[in-house]
Design a protein around this nucleic acid. Sequence first.
DNA 1: AGCACGCCGACT
DNA 2: GTCGGCGTGCTC
Length: 733
Amino acid sequence: MPHYFDIALPLPLRKNFTYSVNSLASSIGPGLRVRVPFKGRTLIGIVASQELEAPSYANRVKEIDEILDETPALPEELIRLCHWASTYYQHPLGEVLNAALPQRLREGKSAQVKPLTEYIHTLEGKGLPHDGLRRAPKQQQVHQYLLEHGSLHKDKLKQLEISPGAIKALVDKQLITQQDIAPPEPGTSNVEQLLAETPKTLNKEQSVAVEAIRYHEFGCHLLEGATGSGKTEVYLHIIARVLRAGKQAMLLIPEIGLSGQTVERLRNRFNVEIAELHSNVSEGERGNSWLSAASGQAKIVVGTRLASLTPFQSLGAIIIDEEHDRSYKQQDGFKYSARDVSIYRASQLNIPIILGTATPSLESLNNARQTKYQHLYLHKRAGDAKPPTFEVVDLRNQKLSSGLSERALTAISTTVDQGEQALVFINRRGYAPALVCHSCGWSADCLACDSSMTLHTKPRHLRCHHCDRSRSVPRACGHCKSPDLKPAGFGTEQIEHMLQEVFATSEIVRIDSDATRSKKRLESKLQHARSGSSCIMVGTQMLAKGHHFPNLTLVVVVDADQGLISPDFRALEQMGQSITQVAGRAGREEKPGRVIIQTHRPEHPLLQTLLCQGYQHFALELLAQRHQSNLPPYWHLVLFKAESKHAEVCVNLLQQMREIIQQLIPTNSQALLLGPLPANLEKINDRYRFCLQLSSPQRKLLSQLLPLALTQIDQLALSKRARWSIDVDSLEN
DNA sequence: AGCACGCCGACT
DNA sequence: GTCGGCGTGCTC
């Protein structure tokens, strides 16, 4: 008699498929990977549950080809988490589980931890003279290292810049050989040996924070502390407690160029295995980290949002650094928020979670105010550093040089004269955001998108920042043939160029994604800036996050207006956060930083609040506004997006969706439908984009309504003609 | 998603 | 006369 199982498959379908097992295999349960036939091909799926009885379509059910695991590839806890996320975000379970699995397991390979390996000398190698390989410097380096240390860990290779080639050569010459290192027995590690260095002494507020956390039950803690107030040290103390209790810790960081500094501090502090999971970790290493965390071998997992779906043997605490950062929300495919998923996870595991930031998201702030979260503060900046002073420059009727006011230029000049560093912050790369005809107003627009093309120099060309198409710079207007084409607006390149002319003797360092295509160049530029030698930095958002420049005393925000006039209701919140973050880059112990904000709206009340009273007051006022306007975090937002080559397909589909949803909203309940509306940029890459907005103050209403609506939507003929998606708790609008 | 089936335009 | 375009439907 066959047994039936519900299998989640990696397909964009909001349903599972039933397969049978005839031979009575010992035990098949949730979390096991199976290979199954699926419409002529074979897929790897995950057992979701056992069916109690034969389904009505039993005659069409196929048999499982192979069971790939003996024990679940995903622990029960993680499966439950994925189930929850699948329901909450209305994303197919198979794809959610797939996002949680490393490539190796997705492809059906073994879920065994690969033993760690190290290189040691062979007898012949040991007998080799000290400088026996001096004609092959890299091989000599390895030889030398082995003479000194006895063994060379595989993980060290990258750090020592030794290529696989050099290793292979030595292995081929039979001078070195590989050997497995037995993993340390879990649970036997000596508590006293956890620490590799003496922890720093905490100040009063820091220890209050560490003590306020109850380590054996769920609690969400919002740790609010300015740049330099010692949040990381608090994290380290929390992690130490978790490790001492024999548990593991997870630390999430935003997607920024470098996760290096945080990881380095962890490695310096703790003598435990630390697994890294972020985008510059290769897929293979990611698999190892994943397995290592699952087995309990890795005690600390550090990573970006992806790491939030790592399995653990016994997770003891979760820390989310820069909690407000938007990169925690995945913007495509499975649109989950790593922060919110982690909060749910902590509650399920009954462990504490700590959200750290200098600029809390309005969501977290609201939860803290409703006492759902415990609000902890770190006011004091390290070493008594003073907070920066703000100056607003009214740009109206001012003479500007490439967007910079006289006042800003004077301030930069003073700063470099004193041997200090200045940072010019502008969130726009390229030379100018548009090229405009001076006689008729025509602008060089992208043929595939609803936007102008950005002028770049070095090499000189036009590029669309939405679809990445590029073209040469036209000599004459495409409309009236006038040769009088002028760049309109400013980008990093133009400001760099202008600064080079004005400050001929100063060094200008531009840091944006164009100037730092390679990781090496970014690192060398940052290294240079950190060294403290006087320079003027020009940079985008990239520079605002997480870097510390000890000699930086002036920050110029070229254009605060973007945040003040944007139609996106989150633009103000983001402006407040990024101004506060860049301002945090400025200042030293003895010398407060100076921050110059340029704007055409100096009297904007919220800008005033931000600059005069600080982010906290600013955020509270924003919250009041959101409350008034029925916006998040008070009302919950679900966005339906549709994309197609034909605008009418999108509009019609969304209109049909709207009708389906409308019918499901009970009368007398609070819910609002808006749209179909064209997206911010209506056309990108020759595809039209529209959206439909659903919001309600009742989360429950939405969670009940969405599955019903989606079942009906999936059946619409039009839903196959447009690419569409649903975004729960969308950060767009 | 991927793959087959099916019905209409420009090509050896 | 075919090759192939992508609209439609289905997958346990």
